[in-house]
Amino acid sequence: MGIRIIIDSTSDVTPEIIDKYNLIMVPLTVNFEDKSYLDKIEIKSDEFFELLSKSEKLPTTSQVSPGTFVETFSEILLQGDEIIGLFLASEFSGTYESARIAKDMIGGDKIHLIDSRSVTLGSFALILEAIELVNQNKNIQEIVETLEVLKDKVEAVAVLDTLKYLEKGGRLSKGQAVVGSILNIKPIIRIKEGKINVIDKIRGNNKTIRWFDKWIEENNFDLSDKTILLFHGRNIEQLKVLREAIENKYKIKNIIEQEIGPVIGTHAGPGVLGIGFVNK
């Protein structure tokens, strides 16, 4: 009997890691005015941002349904495996609740669900820890207990071009969103404990890399033993500059680059640049 890890598409885990570790990804949905798409399956990042730039009305997103989870869970259980489901913060989506409903419908004690209290690179960082624990042949209870502790140690921050997408999607108040609308001010958000908070703001692109460097220094993060996630949304050139600035200075163990997917792009918009890791 093995352990299978199920994730949702908002973690933005790379296809290479999904394939290598036999993860199962269930997609959320992106809804434009005339058509809906399964995240990462029916629409990729490039196509999404192209449609977003032409759309007069911002798209919306939809959670994974309980029925989808029932099908996914049942298929794995029939193979004799146990399940660890690791999903985006319940504060951001009903996806975790859908998984819980499906678990209750199926019954038994082979399904274990974890609310990451994060999203995108924060969830991704926790998923990497889950993969490592499974590969160490830890039992399911040890894995769940360890992940519940580690999820509070996830660090995830990002610089956005604007807060209008988070505000339109209901993830931030209008008052919080106003800060980014004047004087080319770029808000910096922190995703922690199921909340998105504006923790700082900078003016213009030139100070972005310097801010990340200062943030690492001031918090005394030791990155030499960590896998660091660098994410962007149509901002690969600045990601490369950030990587070059921190890779050698902090002697980072490993770096994974990824572009945010359509669902996260709906709420973050283009131009985002972020960093995430588990500070254990």
Rank of each mutant, 00 (worst) to 15 (best):
M1T: 11
R4N: 10
I6V: 07
S11Y: 00
V13W: 02
P15M: 13
I18C: 12
D19V: 14
M25V: 08
Y37W: 07
D39E: 08
I43V: 11
I43K: 01
K54A: 13
E56V: 11
T60H: 03
S74F: 09
G80Q: 02
D81L: 13
F87D: 00
L88R: 02
A89S: 07
S90Y: 09
F92T: 00
G94L: 08
T95L: 04
E97A: 13
E97I: 12
S98Y: 01
K103H: 08
D104V: 13
D104L: 15
G108T: 04
I111F: 02
H112M: 04
D115I: 05
S118P: 01
S118M: 05
S118G: 06
V119M: 06
T120W: 04
G122D: 03
V134D: 07
K138V: 14
I140M: 05
I143M: 10
V144P: 00
L147T: 02
K151F: 03
K151L: 01
K151V: 03
D152C: 14
K153P: 08
A156D: 01
V157K: 03
V157E: 00
L166G: 00
L166S: 04
A177G: 12
G180K: 02
I182K: 11
N184W: 07
I196H: 04
V198F: 08
V198P: 05
I199W: 08
R203H: 10
I209H: 03
I209P: 02
W211L: 05
W211F: 10
W215L: 10
E217A: 13
E217P: 03
F221L: 03
F221R: 08
I228A: 07
F231A: 05
I236T: 08
L239R: 11
K240G: 11
R243W: 06
R243K: 14
A245F: 07
N248Y: 06
K253W: 12
I256R: 10
I260F: 07
P262D: 04
V263S: 02
I264G: 01
I264H: 02
G265F: 02
G265E: 00
H267W: 01
H267I: 00
G276F: 09
K280Q: 14
